[in-house]
Write a protein that binds this DNA or RNA. Sequence first.
DNA 1: CTTGTAAATGTTATATTATTACACAGTGTT
DNA 2: AACACTGTGTAATAATATAACATTTACAAG
Lengths: 132, 132
Amino acid sequence: MEKQHNLSKNQKIIFDLIDKSPEPLKAYSILFNVQKKGINAPLQVYRALDKLVEIGKIHKIESRNAFIACQNSSCQISKATAFSICESCEKVSEISNTKLSKYLSNFADEAGMKYSKYNLEFFGLCKKCKSK
Amino acid sequence: MEKQHNLSKNQKIIFDLIDKSPEPLKAYSILFNVQKKGINAPLQVYRALDKLVEIGKIHKIESRNAFIACQNSSCQISKATAFSICESCEKVSEISNTKLSKYLSNFADEAGMKYSKYNLEFFGLCKKCKSK
DNA sequence: CTTGTAAATGTTATATTATTACACAGTGTT
DNA sequence: AACACTGTGTAATAATATAACATTTACAAG
């Protein structure tokens, strides 16, 4: 059985917002959106984000400083992530590809070194933007 | 023939600093280091960094907001990058692995979509830190 | 050689992203 | 009750990055 994480009040508010969003959210845009719910300070947001990332409920898109809910039900820990990012409309999708994740998890560098985590971001044009 | 990029004065100062550094440098640490050479403002640093990234002389380590000189002589454009990052000592190395780069350049997602660029960051413990 | 243009520079101010430091509250042990 | 652990609240500040504007340099086309 996977470990159940009972989210705290702030964590739940912030996760729900991110989960409902069709696009990655930035920390201060989250802050703006939850102020009516009593979350007033950046730190409150960052603390919840840190925890949610740690337990794998959300991922950070490093190149965008933005956060997206995990789309991959099997991904309980945020240690092996891959995304596609449209450089025109900024749409971001999580890639769940078994071959890719196996390939990267097993990757060993020249020195035979293996890695416990990775983050991969692909950039290009999404279908919609390509056909414009 | 590869295109020759003649660096401007500021670009050269900043590239030289990054190129000589054994570790990735952050923008404001660069700024601090080049103030004696007449570069006074953040924007001057960021402009040079942007250009250097664009022409592939340096890469940005997104998860660290830091910049490293390209170690891969064949990499003239910053469009396909892979790094290993030690989570203990923060040592960063560029990975030049033909199989890996071919695999990722040819990767197509579920919808058959291919991507023009990618950035991959592996995390783990380097040899030194592992043996501690 | 002068005109046009793209790239680079310099400067000030400001926006955006993230953390430090401190005080306190809730929950579940032992 | 004493303890440890996690979470919360607040203020201040640090660190990262960009906007806006004025000017200068490099260099090719006419």
